[in-house]
Structure formats: C-alpha cells, structure tokens
Design a binder for these strands. Structure first.
Length: 255
DNA sequence: ATGGCGCCACATTGGCGA
C-alpha cells in the first residue's frame, strides 16, 4: 500500500500534474493540501476518471485538503473535533483498514504575528485530538504539510533560519510532542540522501540551488511503522513547468 | 535593502505562503 502527501498550491492550476502523478505512481491514497478552491469547484469528475475516490474539505482562496483513494474512503471526518476552526485544514478517513489524517498545519508567518499564536494553539489542539484518535485507531497515518522543519538537518541553512518561523523552538517542541504521542517520522526510519527537502522557495532559484526545507511529513503510528518498507521524496514534479513549491512525499506499507 | 515568485481575489495591487 503506497500512501503519499502533496501540497499542490492550487489544485486548479496543478490538476494536470496531479493526474499525471497518480497515473505514474498509482498510490493507494494521496493526501492533498492547499487546494485553494471551494467544494463546489472540486474537480471530482477528473479525479474519478483517473480511478480515484475523493473526500475533500475546501474553501475559497486559502487552505483546503483532500484524500484521494483507489478504494472508497469511509468514516470521513472534517476538522479537529472540539476545535472550531473556520480554516479547512484537516480531513480524515478510513482507507483499506488504515486511518488517514490529511493535515495542513498553519504557516505562522513570523514569530511576532497573530498567525504564529494561531499556529501554536492549532498544534496544541491537533495534538490533543490525535492522542484520542490514536487510542481509537492503532493503524494511524498523519500525512501533510506540517510547516515545521524538525531538525537543523532539515534546513538548507540552519544559521540563516535560526529562530525563524518553521524552525523555532516552540514549533519544534510541538512537533516532538506529536511524535511522543506514539508516532514515527517515516522518512527518518530509512537512510536518506543528505540535504533532503520537500519545499523550496519559488524565488532565487531555490530549487536549482537546493535551498529547501523538509516540512512535509508522514507520521506513522507504531502499529503502522512496523509495516513501513520505505519513504522518499519525489523531486520530479518540482522540475515541472509551473510546479508547486512542494514535492510529494511517499511511504510504502506492506499491507 | 523584508525584495525575489506564484496564486488568488472585493484584481492592474495587496494578502499570503514559507
């Protein structure tokens, strides 16, 4: 079972690339973030023609998440239970016996921004909710754009980024708190190339110079990580014309 | 030097992303 996550930065613009990627990699499930479209505009026909079911939660302009799956997604839930968030950032569902959570963690903008406080509060609610989800679903995978680079090795220039949003100590503490609930960072369960990242700034030839951050992650519960046989970042779509600024991350499960 | 690039919308400029 191949599961994947990709922040597409507008599904409207990236739809042809998503369809190409599905055809090439045939994942059992693909979690998408930053759809940037309302549910009424979700390209359901194109996704279904590609052989996928879709569960989605979108809004105009910002955010928006979806789970595409080859078998139907059941018990679909939207948002973080008990956290009334108008921003569409979380969708979860059962797919072939695995509970999938697709998440788009707030960016935070900068440490002195209200958006940063929102991010930390959001992560606190997310963590409390995931603890309950984990108790209910031993086979739990949390895929998405976490907007946190967990370690300096996940940052192209740790000195330049020191203390900035995406790498600040409170954000990294929040990420570690998620791990402590009973998850593993699937990417770090395997030997990986040096300087592996999932996001590169559009500006300054960030991708060509590999000036990136590893901020997209697939967290697996202990019940699932034992069945994980690999995890990798697919750099190819970042080389496309009009690419997303994020690359897909893929995990293989022996299920 | 807070820029750069890309996407979106109350659009020809500003908000936001990371």
């Amino acid at each position: 079972m191949r599961i994947a996550s990709w922040n597409v930065n507008s599904l409207k613009v990236r739809l042809p690339q998503v369809l190409d990627w599905l055809a090439k990699h045939q994942p059992h499930a693909l979690c998408l973030q930053e759809l940037k479209l309302e549910d009424a505009n979700f390209p359901i026909a194109a996704i279904e023609s590609a052989g996928y079911f879709a569960a989605f939660s979108g809004q105009k302009t910002y955010n928006g998440v979806a789970i595409l799956s080859r078998s139907p997604a059941t018990n679909v839930a939207r948002g973080i239970a008990g956290f009334g968030d108008p921003q569409r950032r979380v969708i979860s569902a059962d797919v072939s016996g695995v509970r999938l959570v697709c998440a788009y963690v707030p960016n935070g903008q900068s440490l002195d921004s209200d958006k940063y406080n929102y991010k930390l509060g959001w992560l606190s609610s997310f963590s409390a909710w995931l603890e309950r989800e984990l108790a209910e679903h031993p086979q739990l995978a949390v895929l998405g754009d976490y907007n946190i680079a967990p370690e300096d090795s996940d940052v192209h220039d740790p000195k330049a980024w020191e203390g900035q949003v995406l790498v600040s100590a409170p954000e990294r503490d929040a990420f570690r708190n998620l791990i402590r609930l009973g998850f593993s960072d699937s990417f770090r369960q395997f030997e990986q190339p040096e300087k592996s990242y999932t996001w590169w700034d559009y500006r300054m030839n960030g991708f060509k110079r590999n000036l990136g951050l590893r901020i997209d992650h697939i967290l697996l519960s202990h019940g699932l990580v034992a069945k994980c046989t690999g995890c990798s970042i697919d750099l190819e779509p970042r080389r496309n014309e009009r690419p997303s600024d994020h690359a897909p991350i893929v995990a293989e499960l022996s299920l």
